[in-house]
Amino acid sequence: MNGSEGRSYDGARDALCYIKGQGDDMVILELGLTRSADEPELGGILAGPSERNAVLMASGLSLGGRMAFIWAPGSPLFAGRSYEQIRTAVAIPNLKVVILSSHDWTALGHDGAVGLMCEDIALMRVMPNMAVLVPSDRNSAFALTRSLAGNDGPAYVRLSMAATGDIYEYGDSDFAVGGARLLTEGDGVTIVSCGVMVKEALEAAKVLSQQGINADVIDCYSIKPFPERMLVASVRRTGCCVVAEKHASAAGLYGAVTECLARNYMVPVRSVAIGDNFATSGTHEEIQEYYGLTHREIVHNVVQVWAMRRR
């Protein structure tokens, strides 16, 4: 597994194998025509290449009494292609269906705008009943996916193929739907991030501490339900906030954060994200640089927002 350390993709896959071994009240639907020959078998039902049909089948399996996990490697467009089916057949009846969309958009960067979806968190977040989770590394992906076996409704999990390294210890199980983790504590700025940007946020915090700004770094892996109390408590101390996500800047984590702050405690906020753009083709690293999804960009935004912080 060279170069794949810490991928949330692997953590979620391991968790599915683990849950499957615990009993037969769950079922895995594998999207695709064939299974990958390189990985141990998940032992799920091969659902075929259609996202829409996979969602409908998951709905039926769940209506029959089993929790259905849709394993959708290679389908970054999942949320868009099957939006209506997710809405009508899963979210409205509030069924136990978990969608694991296993690439965030830059992992398939070569595909460019058409093959890369950076609006999926937004689409899933506005859907009533749907939980939206974006784990940041292999260990948190494992624990979160495992915890979903006890979830009462539908969930969308956005995984990544990018090797982020371990952020959490192996075996750390302190993750739950609606939760978040405070990774570093400080009183200068709140940096909220999710998925692969958590690693960048931690890097940024190191740089900032050398400049005398101590950051609260929050891994906001549960975008919905949103961990409101942790964020509000943090910005009350720091008075400013930067949000970092690998997503369009509208309606994703930045949307969740600003909605929460508008309701509770207004502070200046900046977004480090893809902006209002469709992505271009390129490698994972090139795209990170091109769109400024880097710790340097986070530092840059923190400096601006810190100057305007609420005191």
């Binding site: 969602v55 409908l56 039926g60 209506l63 009508t88 009846p93």
Partner: peptide, 26 residues
């Protein structure tokens, strides 16, 4: 709507996929 007694599945979308999932589970 599945909250209605006697309704086995949500309506309003392609029901065959749902029926297939149900049939497999049964």
């Amino acid at each position: 709507d599945i909250r209605t007694p006697g309704i086995d599945a949500p309506g309003g979308t392609n029901g065959l996929g749902i029926a297939l999932g149900l049939a497999l589970q049964i």
